[in-house]
Structure formats: C-alpha cells, structure tokens
Design a protein around this nucleic acid. Structure first.
Lengths: 194, 194
DNA sequence: ATTTTGAACAAAAAACTATTTTGGTCGAAA
DNA sequence: TTTCGACCAAAATAGTTTTTTGTTCAAAAT
C-alpha cells in the first residue's frame, strides 16, 4: 500500500471536481473521471459505490472548504457588528466564486435531485446558526438590541437569498459589495427616526 | 358591430388566461384558445398577431390588476411605516396567489424568453419606485431617518426577492406573514443599541 | 366593411426505431 | 489489496417518419 486508499479517493474527488465543473452532473461520465484520474473505469468503482457518491464527495469537500474559509474570516475580529459584516461579505464572495466555477450547472435542472435539496437545507441551518451566534454575542456585549434573535437570524438568512440572486445576475463585483454593505448599514441603523 | 373589437379581444384574453395557467405557455395551443373562446382558430388571428401577443396581453392585464390591487391597498393609510408594511404584505400575498394560479409555469423553462426578462425588470423598477416614494414621504414627515433613500429602496427590493423565494417554498401562509412582519419590524428598529 | 372560417402549408413536436454511450457488475489477473 | 478487461442492461443519442401546431389567405358570412 504505497499510497493509502483515502489518498486515492481524495485524488479522484479532486479530478472529478474539475470535470463536474466543466460538464455539469449529467454530462460528466464515469469514464471521463477514470481517464482523468489515470485509472480504469472499474477501478473507480473500487473506491466509490456510484457516480452520485463521487459527486456527493465533491460537494461535501466544497462545503468543508467554504465553512473553513468563513470560519477563518470571521475569526479576524471579535466585534459582533464587524463580524456580521465580514461574514456576509465573505459568504457572498465565496458563493460567487463557486457559482462561477460550477458555471455549467446553471443550465442543468439540478434542483430535482433530492440530495441537493437536503444539502441546501443543511447550509441554511448552518448559516442561521452562525448568524444567531453573532447576534447573541452582540446582545451579550450590549451592542445589539434584538427582541427575538432567532427570528432575526431567520429573516437575515432569507433576505440574504435575495442578495444571492442579485450576485448571480450582476457582474460588477465592486457594485455588489457596495450594495451589500449598504444593506447591512441599514440593518444596523434601522430606518426609523429615534 | 354588436360587440366591439376590444370586447372580443378582452374575452379571448380572459379565456386564454385560464388555459395558459393550466397548461403553461408551450402546451397551450392556439386551437385550444380558439375553441374555449368559441371561435375558429383563424378568427383568433383576426384579433391577435400571434400566440406571443395573446400571452403578452394576458401578462399585461395581470400586471395591471396587481398594480391596481397594490395601489388600493396602500391608499388605505398615509402613515409611511404602515404603508410600507401594507405594501410588502400585499405584494407577497398577490404574488403568492398568482404563483399558485400559474402553477404549471413552474416546470416550464420560461426564463429563456427575453420578453419575460424585460417584464421582470420593469416590475423591479416599479417596485423600487413605490418603495422610494414611501421612504421619501417618511423622511419628509420626519418618521424615517435614511441617509441614501435610493440605495435603501434598492436594498429592500433585493431583500424582498429572498422572501419571495421563501414564499415559493413554504406552504403555511400565516407563518409566512409572521416572518415577513418580523423582518419589517427589524428593519424599522434596526438592530443596533441606541 | 367587418368578422368568421375552412383549407392549406411550413415548421415544430412527438413517436418510433436503430445505434451508441454509459453506469454499473464480476471474475480474473497483477 | 488493487486494477482492469469483458460484459450487460439501461439510458442517451441520432436518424427517420408521422402528427400536431402556428400562421396565412382567399372566400364566405354577417
């Protein structure tokens, strides 16, 4: 066992990632993955049960990287307001980058697959939790004043979906960041006169 | 001329509306529209240039009804805060109703048609204008305190898209309204401690 | 003059068939 | 333990024929 089984699995996942990104899920063939990984097709089946399992591994790794990246970004400050801003901007930038990497998926009717649906829900829960933690920390530090943090976190997550859609259409990334920052500023100040 | 040309056109649009709603754009045939309107297929062409023109007429009428409904709803109060709340809730309810009426369009890849894209952009501009008017009125009445109302209006429109998506998935309409009201309350108060 | 319609037709969709590709299995070889 | 060629059923694709559908137009009805 010169290289571990896990190492080969990881290598296959890494090469598969590029092929999925370029051709989408449906048009990516097991043979293409195998050839890119310099393996026979049936060898790939020694490491993965089927195509879906490979794709799931790619997605999971992507999610792990995203979470890691976000965790690092928000670790740079302990100020809740700053933290929320950094979180939102990082989240948008990362998702923007991923959406462009997997650009071929735009034309694919991928939402049908129920494991994608589940993955989406998982990510929503993760996001709600992070925001809720930041909000609670802000309340504890007497920087935020929020009646119902759980509801607030949910609202923010839902609103961010609108901005996510916006980030999907608009190309000018500087404008996107400006718009997102402005939205956050509005959230912080509220619009009512005090 | 027992009935005016316009009346017949309107009647065709009204019947076509139901057929489009049930079958979607592609699966709706000119023959089905004609039969439902108790006309020969070629008679319909006396009133409309082609299928797209009928569909456009249906959409335009729908938009007119929506705008009218929203206009009526927000006319019920002159208080800017109340007005904004009523606007958002009415908008959501109306779009929810329409989305369910045209449920067959969900499986249709309709976003390709460029006239749908233009229609979407028009609606965005309309929405931004209404919100901007409310915000400005609120500032004038010294109820709102907003640095840049234009940017704020844009942000609200974008955020509402997230809620629109949410209204598309969630079925419990009471929960939807509660969530939307909570989001607005947060917007009004802001989350920062004063 | 205005409105309606049947007949006709090109273009698109659907149905059908033949062919190729592809996801997945298995036993043997390395 | 790992790799792979040979194999297969199912699915995708390509190619062809048939049917449906959008649109036109001249003639008939009002």
């Amino acid at each position: 066992m010169a290289v571990s089984k896990k190492a080969v699995r990881d290598a296959i996942v890494d090469t598969a990632r590029y092929i999925f990104a370029r051709f989408g899920y449906r048009k990516t063939t097991m043979d293409a993955i195998a050839r890119a990984a310099r393996k026979g097709k049936s060898s790939v089946y020694y490491y993965f049960k089927n195509k879906e399992e490979i794709f799931l591994a790619v997605v999971n790794k992507e999610v792990a990287v995203v979470k890691e990246e976000i965790r690092n970004a928000i670790a740079s400050t302990s100020d809740p307001k700053e933290k929320l801003t950094i979180y939102v901007l990082t989240r948008m930038r990362v998702l923007y980058r991923i959406a462009h990497f997997y650009s071929s998926f735009r034309e694919e009717y991928l939402q049908e697959y129920d494991f994608i649906q589940r993955f989406r829900e998982d990510l929503d829960r993760y996001e709600t939790k992070i925001i809720l933690d930041i909000l609670r920390d802000g309340i504890r530090k007497k920087i935020f004043s929020i009646e119902d943090p759980t509801t607030a976190a949910n609202s923010i997550v839902v609103a961010l979906k609108g901005f996510e859609y916006y980030w999907g259409t608009e190309e000018n990334i500087t404008k996107l960041e400006k718009q997102t920052e402005d939205m956050l500023e509005m959230l912080y100040r509220g619009i009512l006169k005090k």
